[in-house]
């Protein structure tokens, strides 16, 4: 358990899809500057839990507490407005738009030219650069389509967007799954930077190497219930695997 009061906590969350009990009384919390790994085999309920926390699904039972008070998110926009950003595996970047346009997608600033409002691309690029600077990421150009960036750079743009919009909790679904080894290192470094900046990070991963390298705490789900929770310092991969397979 973390010393700090949790920033976001899910308590007693249950969710049923038709005849399938996907989650049953699940607990998950994250404190500012804490990295929590959410582990579990396929079908354990990790993604369902994440989608409840980020407003995609609503829980059948249980409650979400954010900064100490109960909260409900009717949709992902509400969760995002509250400061909970989710980065999905496919990143949700528009490949054909540049870095600035992706960071500001849906929230574009305007400037006036001869009284006519136009999208302020220069500001979007400059601000995108600033938010990536905070993450110690430098791109050589910010005006190229993100399609031309590498996997790690794209991951950085997605994270940069979350940071720019003042995410206080960042949820990442398999952030390194699609990346080569050097790029995985970069994303690990990014998560460390976020942690240093006081962001609470929840990340789903199958990769025990990543989990043990970066997390402070590991929450293991098995068949929709909490199978265990360990401080990363005080456990080892064998124990986590045992919890994951329900041993």
């Amino acid at each position: 358990m973390s010393d700090a009061a949790p920033l976001l906590a899910a308590k007693g969350i249950s969710k049923r899809f038709g005849g399938v009990q996907a989650l049953k009384g699940v607990e998950l919390s994250v404190a500012p500057g804490e990295v929590v790994a959410l582990a579990g085999d396929n079908g354990a309920g990790k993604t369902t839990l994440i989608k409840i926390v980020s407003g995609v699904f609503q829980a059948d039972a249980g409650e979400l507490r954010y900064e100490g008070s109960a909260i409900r998110f009717a949709n992902p926009q509400e969760a995002r407005r509250a400061g909970i950003e989710t980065i999905y595996q496919d990143l949700a970047l528009a490949d054909n738009l540049d870095v600035g346009a992706n960071v500001f997608l849906g929230r574009e600033p305007h400037r006036r030219v001869l009284g006519v409002p136009v999208i302020d691309r220069a500001t979007m690029r400059a601000e995108a650069r600033r938010s990536l600077d905070v993450l110690d990421i430098q791109l050589h150009r910010y005006d190229v389509p993100v399609r031309t960036l590498s996997g790690g750079q794209r991951q950085a743009v997605a994270i940069g967007r979350a940071i720019y919009w003042k995410a206080r909790v960042l949820i990442m679904d398999e952030p390194t799954a699609a990346l080569g080894v050097p790029e995985q290192r970069k994303v690990m470094a990014l998560i460390r930077n976020l942690k240093a900046g006081g962001v609470g990070v929840i990340f789903i991963s199958h990769n025990l190497g990543d989990i043990f390298e970066i997390s402070d705490r590991i929450v293991v789900l098995h068949r929709g219930v909490n199978a265990g929770e360990r401080a990363t310092r005080a456990t080892n991969p064998d124990e986590i695997v045992r919890l994951m397979v329900g041993g």
């Binding site: 110690d136 430098q138 399609r147 950085a156 970069k186 460390r192 930077n193």
Partner: peptide, 11 residues
């Protein structure tokens, strides 16, 4: 950490 070196796009 140290700045992450990231290669220039070539598009």
């Amino acid at each position: 950490s140290a700045p992450l070196a990231i290669e220039a796009p070539r598009a």
